[in-house]
């Protein structure tokens, strides 16, 4: 099999001595869409932040394309990310938000317009983000993630606030992206949507990996993703 696109090994992150991510290991390959599931506070967002170099692990490693994120030469051209919070200056227009990031990655104006069109924001791109709806902000986050035409997408609850058309679009987009060789790690609580859009699920709780199964395996066992998820996470809780 080809080298993993994202790989965590023995990844541990503690806050004040309490582990949020606890000796977590998994690998993700090109062409794969992996759903990253787990209860609130399970450590999903923390894991994604460690992969992106926003936080430093207490121990273990988190690598993308074989390197620490911070050591990538052109990170936005390899990895695109949408994090859990809407990270915008309310006083800046959507277009300028994308442009500011494009400038620091040496990406041209043409591509800025292209990604705004791709997420269907062209019409409102010159309005201040402070006036955007939740779904519009989510789309703007996706536009910035796609700016560098990355090969790995790291998405933290991206369908939060998206309208049905947006969810449908994202599902189709991610499928095309993976078919083109891209890899996606997407956290979500919306299991019905996850079931339709991912190839594989990673389920964690209290920072530890509970399950790593393909959707085919789950379907073969006869249950829905929801039944499997609840069985796995509740078995631990009891």
């Amino acid at each position: 099999m080809s080298a993993p696109v994202a790989e965590v090994e023995g990844l541990t992150k503690s806050f004040g001595g309490v582990p949020a991510v606890d000796h977590l290991s998994f690998a993700l390959h090109g062409g794969e869409i992996a759903g990253f599931l787990g209860p609130n506070g399970a450590g999903k967002s923390t894991t994604l932040r460690l992969l992106l170099g926003l936080a430093a692990p207490t121990s273990g490693t988190a690598r993308v394309f074989g390197r620490r994120y911070a050591d990538l030469d052109e990170p936005t051209r390899s990895v695109g990310a949408v994090l859990e919070f809407a990270d915008f200056h309310p006083n800046r227009t959507g277009r300028n938000h994308v442009r500011v990031l494009a400038l620091s990655s040496g990406i041209d104006e043409h591509r800025v317009a292209e990604v705004l069109e791709l997420v269907d924001l062209s019409a409102v791109a010159d309005r201040k983000v402070g006036g955007y709806s939740l779904g519009m902000r989510q789309r703007l986050g996706l536009a910035t993630a796609l700016l560098g035409d990355p090969k790995l997408l790291i998405l933290d609850e991206p369908i939060n606030g998206l309208d049905p058309a947006g969810v449908h679009w994202l599902r189709a987009f991610l499928r095309r992206f993976a078919d083109g060789g891209g890899a996606v790690l997407v956290s979500s609580h919306v299991l019905a949507e996850v079931e339709q859009s991912v190839d594989r699920v990673l389920i964690i709780n209290q920072g530890r990996l509970l399950a790593d199964q393909s959707m085919t395996e789950i379907a073969r066992d006869g249950g829905s993703l929801e039944q499997t998820y609840l069985a796995i996470t509740q078995a631990v809780a009891l």
């Binding site: 990170p75 936005t76 990310a81 990270d87 990655s105």
Partner: peptide, 18 residues
């Protein structure tokens, strides 16, 4: 401080991790 307040520091350092 405005970048920390609005959260734009995250996309900023994702684009420029150094």
């Amino acid at each position: 401080t405005a970048e920390f307040r609005t959260g734009t520091i995250r996309p900023t350092v994702l684009a420029t991790p150094r």
